[in-house]
Write a protein that binds this DNA or RNA. Sequence first.
RNA 1: GGGGUCGUGGGGUAGCCUGGUCUAUCCUGCCGGCUUUGGGAGCCGGUGACUCGAGUUCGAAUCUCGGCGACCCCA
Length: 482
Amino acid sequence: MIHTGERVKRERWKSNFSEWFSGILRSADIMETRYPVKGLFVWLPYGLKLRNHVFAIMRELLERSGHQEVLFPQLIPENIFKKEAEHIRGFEEQVYWVTHGGKDKLDVKLALRPTSETSIYPMFALWIRSHADLPIKIYQIVNIFRYETKMTKPMIRLREVTTFKEAHTAHAKPEEAEAQVREAVHIYKRFFDELGVPYVVTKRPRWDTFAGAEYSLAFDTLAPDGRTLQIGTAHNLGQNFAKVYELKYEAPNGKHHYVYQACYGVSERVIAAVMMAHGDDVGLCLPPNVAPIQVVIVPIPFKGREVPVEQIATAIKNELAAAGLRVHLDERDLRPGNKFYYWERRGVPLRLEVGPEDVKKEQVTVVRRDTGEKQAIAKGALKTKVKQLLEEITGDIRKRAWKSFHESVKDASDTETIKRVIEKRGGIARMPWCGGKACGKALEEQTGGDLLGEEFDGKTPSGACPICSKRAKVSVLIARTY
RNA sequence: GGGGUCGUGGGGUAGCCUGGUCUAUCCUGCCGGCUUUGGGAGCCGGUGACUCGAGUUCGAAUCUCGGCGACCCCA
């Protein structure tokens, strides 16, 4: 219980994550999950605010690094969509098609974009003339459709991903595309760090590379149930799409060359990652920078003394709002204890209580959502202290999330150990690997896990591949995945 | 891809096997009133449901088939 000043337990959060997650979506007013079409869900006002704050951080990071926002149509004509053969092989099972306009059958079917390479790159062909047009760095935040046949889950496996940030770039030189992938990784690290969401970066094995890419890097975080969740990807596309969509530029010497490309994406899965990273059995604990409400004020009125309490609460609200904080005064006619649980479920990082005792002593009682710690603060110091506490919470929940993440990544040198690591409530196993596909597949089969890929910028391991016993080339990460 | 379980007010459920006073139980939520307010108070009143379609039957929440949806296991 929070009122004892102790941290809230994380038993249900861990042992029954699925139930915890769907329960909290409703009880914290994040999403309505009863929309009558499989895999489609409704963002509620509070959840949407959270989503918007999260993606505002992404926008800021992209704009600061020279990306420009665009907005492309959602429909892609079949003939253009199907140009890149490998890309299509990767997606055709998952595409929704628009086949009719009213009662008329369309001459050319229209795909509801499952991702936007094939709608964006034909336009690149029109825009790219000379080397001076390069690089192009654009992004959009849009919905995409994928016909998922497996079990769907809000935010995690959707038929309509409502929130998909995809960036697409074109460059003159291969090393520029390579550098762009690195920049994407850098941006995503900053992004997830801002949210306190821990991650590993891996280079996906060749058989799990994005359809049409040279190679794919991916960010994975860990759900409380020990399974990994892919929360970001960055692909080096080389010239694969450039050759299909005729993306050529004229070099200073008058020669024409295909461009080199990168693309990288993050979806609303990141919201699930934020929720799970900092949640507990009571509910959410949102990072202050994305919390729709950063500070909630709960007045504690006593009969006959309501007036001063309410006046002071309102004054505090105005003071904090003027200081740029998202603050809410809960004036509902409910008992305080009820309100405490209500706002804790919704993850509001700081709660202020103003009661008769506080009025008498010219103080405010402040309670941290993450630790339950309760303290009295002199009214004069409130603004400064609140800001300071919010920063402390940001840092502390990030550290705490990383700590539990690190505890879940374990070294292994044989398949039995891997199995133990990734089994129930497990985590991620780190393994030496020869890099061969046959061994990779065998590892997956023998352990029941999925190969995330080789650690990006990881050290060369000293051990041997557990399957073929050859000297390992890379460290590979294995886990059960979402 | 294969197999299984399930669907009752806003949420969680009882009832179903053995069809009939089911006018559908309880908890919670929500609305109104009284009262209370430093960790989910209490009392009174109110609101609100058998997933959809077809079938069997005198009669279906209950039995059969199908759709839609949810969840679980295996590959």
